[in-house]
Structure formats: structure tokens, C-alpha cells
Design a protein around this nucleic acid. Structure first.
Lengths: 284, 284
DNA sequence: ATGGCCGTTCCGCGGTATGGGACATCTATG
DNA sequence: CATAGATGTCCCATACCGCGGAACGGCCAT
């Protein structure tokens, strides 16, 4: 019974264990056996078996009758879908994501910050041959992605510090920002210019432009980004992407009832008015 | 302690209750209070409170600090997304759904059968002004939808009977098939012609065309459909949609390793070759 | 054959989930 | 302002039920 267990402020053990079992499934191991699960969560086979039995009757897991192995069930998908389907920002943002996609053909992401990480809640896949790999529902580190940084930049200093504390600043490439001070300064820059760029900080060849979305209270609730392969990019394309995400973010914010906050910077070098590119006509 | 409780073959009570609580959340009630949940699942406040506390620490629910009410958390979304992201058919089908969408501009659905109901696992929204309302992750009855019927049609007689038994044949419109015999005959027709049509059987003004997708074992694993508004449709459009879903279903099946089963019927009235429409060029 | 690994089942013990109750807070009402 | 009801939260003794050890049978590779 001394099975790890640390935090004394305990919840219901059986429920915690059931959740632990569910969370053991991952994209790389979508199918697990009783014994594997037992080893993974540190529980006796029979205990796992009983928990799985219960979860199976609720549909949260299903057992392959042939291999006897378990996988997650569709009811979980239903519940999970509800979570995002009821996120207003996702509903409002969709058309504008499509707009961006039509304008540039690249991969477009909508993401939010949860527990100091980016969660992709919607995406439109690039039509180009070379694509970045991502999946809606997955998480990504915040300190080295465009979406993440633009979201971090809106956090109060204390919250940012806490996130850094909790998640660390893991290095992924030579470009990754790994110093807290540097990240703070970078966030200040992002706030000032109104958008974030990721130039190969997470994956060497990937770069992206992101802008934050505000709700009616002015709070940042999500961000939108365009991801592209670095090789195909030049100054002009970057400026265009920045312009696209900024305009989309503004429109989505308005759709959420945000009353247009003053800050609306332009790209350095482009005119003071949003005349740079006008690929976002109103539809048709 | 005599709280309903019927099925003797019991699982772990706490886990079952936790799941019951999670499942109480719905699109129409995405936010619930302790008391509401208590009433809904028939449990004492304090019990629900403790369960929620446990679920909250796992992230499966979150409590709004202001209103004290609970909603489902993003980790559930992660798990749920994994379920579909690991469904091979979804990955394989995506490009072909896009192909269909480019060809006709209508709403395109990918669905599977679970527990006698249709579950939408992917969709591309119509670009037209009038759209059918649907959400990925939601369920729909099988007996009155194109996707559902084409999936039901592939079931052994016994399974179909069981589904009818379990789910009934609820009437939604004047067109809904509500007689088991009629449904069986209709399924036979669907098998024979290789596609299903729904002409306002679920919602008066909605119609759709659907075709089944086979995996490498020849088993039907999913189906693809085009949904459109009846008013805008004529004979020719219907034929075009049927052709589109059939071709896409065939390609997706091939993508899953299916070795082209013989059955490949044509629309009555159209030539014996798939020359009708050729909107499916190979890419871009 | 045989040993190892697997999933499954059973059972008695000890821990623990339970629900009543108490309390503070908040809102609506008189 | 007082009051009544509803709500969220916390605590506790007890009955019950989840726990894991052990044992069984099936399946595979050695």
C-alpha cells in the first residue's frame, strides 16, 4: 500500500487511479494491456483489472476481444469534444481561421494556455506538400512556440515566473530561449509590437507568427498562428503572415465582444496604416 | 445507501459515480453546480463535492472561482482527441474529405457506428450561407441519416435487429422510416446500390448522400457523407454527390489497404463508367 | 514438455469512501 | 435590516467495499 503516494491532501483513491490509468494512454501507446498498465501506474494486476472493468462498462475504455488489450473509448471523445465545442472562442474563430488559410495556404492554429502549456484547440492543415505535424488536442511547450509566447506575454509577471518555475525552459534547438530574463524581455517586446514570431525555437525548420485574442473583458483567452516552413519564407512573407494573424485576432476579439483596445502596432518598416496587405476581404 | 443501484454485477462505485458526474455535463448544460450534480446523479452534496474535488485535481473538471460552478477540463479534451487522432481511418480520410469539399462546397462528414448510433469523427463545414448544424463528437440516430443507414446496411441481420431493439426507430419527420421491416428492405437496397440517401428523414430540409468505407479485412469501419439543403438540390446534383462519396469511399478504403471489393454499382441512369463527373483531380 | 507471461477470478481483511451534520456565505424576500 | 432558504465546504464515526495476494487456466516461445 506504500505505492508511491505523496500528496497527503488525498482525493478518492479509486477515482485517482482510474484517471491515472486513462492518462497512461497516449498517441504513441494507444493500446495497453492490463499488465502494462499495472506497471505504468504501479498497481497490482487485479486492481487494474477491476478498474478497467468498471471503466469498460462506462465505455471510457474498450477491450479488444481478440488481443485482450484496452484502448480509450468513444464516450471520452464525446466528452472531450464538448469541452471545445462549448468554448465560444473556437466557434467564433473558425471562419477567420479559414479566411487566413485561404489567404496564405499555410497551417493555421488556434490555441489556448492551460497550466503553462499551449493546447491546440483548432487547426487547419496546410495545403502544401511539406507540413508541420500537429494534432488538435495535443500540448506543446509555451516558451518556444509563437502561440505560446504571445500568450505568455499577456501574463502578469508573477504568473509568468510561476510557469517558468513549473515547466522550465527546455532547450529544443539552438534558437530556443532558455534564460528566464531573456524570455521576460522577449515577452515585453511581444507586448509592444503586438505579435510573436517563432523562428525555429521549437523545431529547427519551422517558424510561425502569432497574435493574441481578447474577450469582452479584455482578457487574453486564446491566440491564432500561422505556421510555415522556414525555407519558403522571406521578409515579405513574414510581414504578410504577421498582418494576417493580427487582423484575424482583432476580428475574432471583436466577435467575442472585445471593444478594440488601443494597442495596434504595425510592422516596423510598413506604413502606419494597415494598408500593407489586404487579403482579408469580407468573404465571397 | 439504497441509492437506486440495480445492476448487481457492480464495478467500483466511486469510479462509476465519478463517470456519471462527468457524463452529466452536456452541450446544453456545460456548467453545473455541486447541488445540481447531486440532484442529477442522486447523491448527497458532500459525496459529489468530494468526487468533484478529486476530479478537479486531475484536471477533468475545473471550478470557476467566481461562480463556484464546475465545467469539464481540457485534459478530457486531450484524451478525447487522442481517441480519434489514433483512428487510422480519420487520418487516411482527411484529404479525401477535403477533396470532396473542394468539389462541391457542401458539408462533408466522416462517421462511425458506435452502440447503434452515428458518431461524427470529422467534418468539413459548408462554405454556403445556409448550413446544417452539427459538431464533431456528437451522436446522431442511425436509422434516419445517410451515414447511419449506410453503416446499418452492412450489419448482419441479428445486429441490425439488436440495434432496432435498443434504439427504437423514433420518428423525426414525415419521411422517417419507423417500421423495422421497411428499414431492413431499405438496407437491402442500400447494399445493392452501394450508397445511401437521406431525404429529409432526420430534418425536414436536409438531405445527404453517404457511402461506406472498408478496411483491409473488408469490414465496414466508417462512412463518408455529403450534406446539403434540399431546396438547392436536383436530380443532377444528387447524382454528383453520390458519385463523389462513392469515389472518396473507395479511395479511402484503398488507403486502408482494402482490396477493392467487387461491388461497385453506378447510379441508375448514369453510364456504367464513373465518367459522370471528374472533379477529383489528384491534388493541389 | 515446460516455464513464463498473460488475463481473470475469488476472498478475507483493513482501510476508506460514505452521508449526515454543522457552519459560513450569499441571495432573495418581506 | 432581518430572515429564510439555498449553496459550498469541512469534519467525523461507522459500515461497507475496494484492495491485493494467491491461485487458476490459457497461450506462446523456448
Amino acid at each position: 500500500m506504500r505505492v508511491r503516494q505523496a500528496a497527503k491532501a488525498s482525493g478518492i483513491r479509486a477515482v485517482e487511479r482510474a484517471v491515472a490509468i486513462l492518462r497512461t494512454f497516449s498517441s504513441s501507446t494507444p493500446e495497453l494491456s492490463v499488465s502494462e498498465l499495472g506497471r505504468a501506474v504501479g498497481l497490482h494486476k487485479s486492481t487494474v483489472h477491476r478498474l478497467l472493468g468498471t471503466l469498460e462498462r462506462t465505455g471510457f475504455v474498450v477491450q479488444d476481444p481478440g488481443t485482450k488489450r484496452y484502448r480509450l473509448g468513444l464516450p471520452l471523445f464525446e466528452l472531450g469534444s464538448m469541452v471545445v465545442n462549448t468554448l465560444e472562442v473556437r466557434r467564433v474563430a473558425r471562419p477567420y481561421l479559414e479566411e487566413i488559410h485561404r489567404a496564405c495556404g499555410e497551417t493555421v492554429h488556434l490555441g489556448i494556455l492551460d497550466e503553462g502549456e499551449v493546447v491546440y484547440i483548432d487547426k487547419i492543415e496546410s495545403t502544401r506538400r511539406v507540413r508541420m505535424y500537429s494534432q488538435v488536442g495535443r500540448r506543446a511547450p509555451a516558451h518556444c512556440t509563437g502561440l505560446g509566447k504571445v500568450l505568455l506575454a499577456q501574463l502578469p509577471d508573477a504568473s509568468l515566473a510561476e510557469v517558468i518555475e513549473r515547466r522550465g525552459l527546455r532547450r529544443f534547438t539552438s534558437k530556443t530561449i532558455t534564460s528566464p530574463k531573456e524570455l521576460r524581455d522577449h515577452c515585453a517586446l511581444i507586448r509592444q509590437q503586438g505579435y510573436a514570431l517563432d523562428t525555429g525555437e521549437h523545431e529547427e525548420l519551422i517558424q510561425c507568427a502569432a497574435a493574441a485574442i481578447h474577450d469582452h473583458t479584455g482578457k487574453v483567452v486564446a491566440a491564432v498562428s500561422i505556421t510555415s516552413v522556414a525555407a519558403a519564407m522571406d521578409q515579405h512573407r513574414v510581414a504578410e503572415h504577421v498582418s494576417l494573424v493580427q487582423q484575424a485576432a482583432r476580428k475574432i476579439s471583436e466577435g467575442l465582444g472585445a471593444t478594440l483596445h488601443i494597442r495596434q502596432k504595425e510592422l516596423p518598416g510598413s506604413p502606419a496604416r494597415p494598408a500593407t496587405a489586404r487579403p482579408l476581404t469580407s468573404g465571397r
